[in-house]
Computed example of a mutant assay.
Amino acid sequence: MGIVSKEELNNAAMQIILHAGDCRNYLSEAIHMSENDEDILMIDLKLKEAKEEITKAHKIQTEMIQNTIENDDMITTLLFTHAQDTLMTIYSELNMTNSILRLYRKLNSKVTI
């Protein structure tokens, strides 16, 4: 790609934030669905959609980092730093949500009403 302009970097940052935010929304939906004992297949679909969104965000970040590494005059912006922070925070939320839901399912399978 060559030299990445600040505008391109900021546009990429916005895409990272949007995809990461979509991931967070899917995670929230999955948790609420679990709380309401909704269909496990629908919950798993939300988790799959969340993973797809975080993967899109991660790919954009990786592309931008690779392009800036190839350039000795590396630029960055506060917005891109914020996007990276958002991405990593929501990635942690994805991991925690998966763990919580696994534990919930395990406990739920042992409880008889």
Score class of each variant (00 low, 15 high):
81 T>I: 15
51 K>F: 08
32 H>I: 08
8 E>F: 07
43 I>W: 00
102 R>P: 00
38 E>A: 00
112 T>L: 08
103 L>R: 01
58 H>I: 01
77 T>Y: 01
66 Q>L: 08
3 I>Q: 06
37 D>V: 00
86 T>G: 08
112 T>A: 12
37 D>F: 08
16 I>F: 02
69 I>D: 09
71 N>A: 03
111 V>Q: 07
39 D>N: 15
109 S>D: 08
78 L>A: 15
64 M>W: 04
66 Q>R: 15
21 G>C: 10
17 I>A: 06
83 A>N: 11
84 Q>W: 05
74 M>Y: 12
52 E>H: 07
103 L>W: 03
7 E>Y: 15
57 A>V: 10
58 H>Y: 09
62 T>K: 08
55 T>L: 11
66 Q>S: 11
15 Q>M: 12
11 N>D: 15
35 E>K: 03
110 K>V: 08
94 L>I: 07
107 L>W: 01
34 S>Q: 13
49 E>D: 12
84 Q>T: 07
51 K>A: 13
12 A>I: 14
49 E>F: 00
41 L>K: 13
112 T>G: 00
75 I>A: 06
13 A>P: 04
45 L>Y: 09
103 L>V: 09
94 L>A: 07
12 A>P: 02
42 M>S: 06
53 E>V: 00
46 K>G: 01
38 E>T: 09
14 M>Q: 11
99 S>R: 14
102 R>E: 14
57 A>K: 05
83 A>G: 05
108 N>A: 09
13 A>H: 12
1 M>A: 10
73 D>P: 01
110 K>R: 07
18 L>T: 12
42 M>V: 04
67 N>A: 13
60 I>T: 00
46 K>L: 02
98 N>I: 01
67 N>P: 02
72 D>W: 05
97 T>F: 01
90 I>V: 15
20 A>S: 14
75 I>N: 06
5 S>F: 12
34 S>F: 06
7 E>W: 04
52 E>R: 11
96 M>K: 02
108 N>R: 07
29 E>A: 05
55 T>I: 09
78 L>T: 14
64 M>F: 10
19 H>R: 08
